[in-house]
Computed example of a mutant assay.
Amino acid sequence: MTKTSMISKKTIGFELLLVISFVILAFAIAMAVGIGEMRIPLRTVALSITNHMGLSNAEIGRIQDSVIWNLRLSRALVTALCGAGLAICGAVLQTLLRNSLAEPYVLGVSAGASTGAVAVIILGIGAGAVSLSMGAFAGAMTAFVFVAVLSNSGRGGPDRTILAGVAAAQLFNALTAYIVTTSGNAQQARDIMFWLLGSFGGVRWPEFQLLIVIIIIGLSICIWHSQALDAFTFGDDAAASMGIAVERVRIILFAVTALITATIVSMVGSIGFVGLVVPHAVRFLIGPGHIRLLPACALVGAVFMVLADIVSRSVMAQQTLPIGIVTALVGVPCFSLILYRARQAV
Rank of each mutant, 00 (worst) to 15 (best):
G269E: 10
N51S: 06
L96K: 02
F137W: 01
R313Q: 13
M6A: 15
S241P: 08
N51D: 06
T2K: 01
Q170P: 08
Y340P: 09
K10E: 14
G135N: 01
R204H: 08
V330S: 13
D230A: 01
E59V: 15
A140W: 09
G218V: 15
I179D: 00
V120Q: 00
M6R: 08
G61M: 08
F273E: 02
L307V: 11
T2Y: 05
F172A: 00
I35R: 05
V268A: 08
L16C: 05
P288A: 03
Y105S: 06
A258H: 09
G13N: 08
G34M: 13
G289V: 13
V303F: 14
A46W: 12
T181I: 13
I216A: 11
M53V: 05
R248K: 03
R98T: 07
I221P: 06
A238C: 06
F14K: 00
A328W: 09
V166D: 01
A80M: 06
L219S: 05
G34V: 14
V300K: 01
A281F: 15
Y340D: 01
L97G: 03
I24K: 01
A255E: 01
S131H: 09
A76V: 15
R204M: 13
S48Q: 06
A177H: 14
G198V: 12
R248L: 04
L42A: 13
H280S: 00
G61Y: 14
I244T: 00
L77Q: 05
C334H: 01
R343P: 13
C297L: 07
R313K: 15
A186D: 10
V19P: 08
A231H: 02
E103L: 12
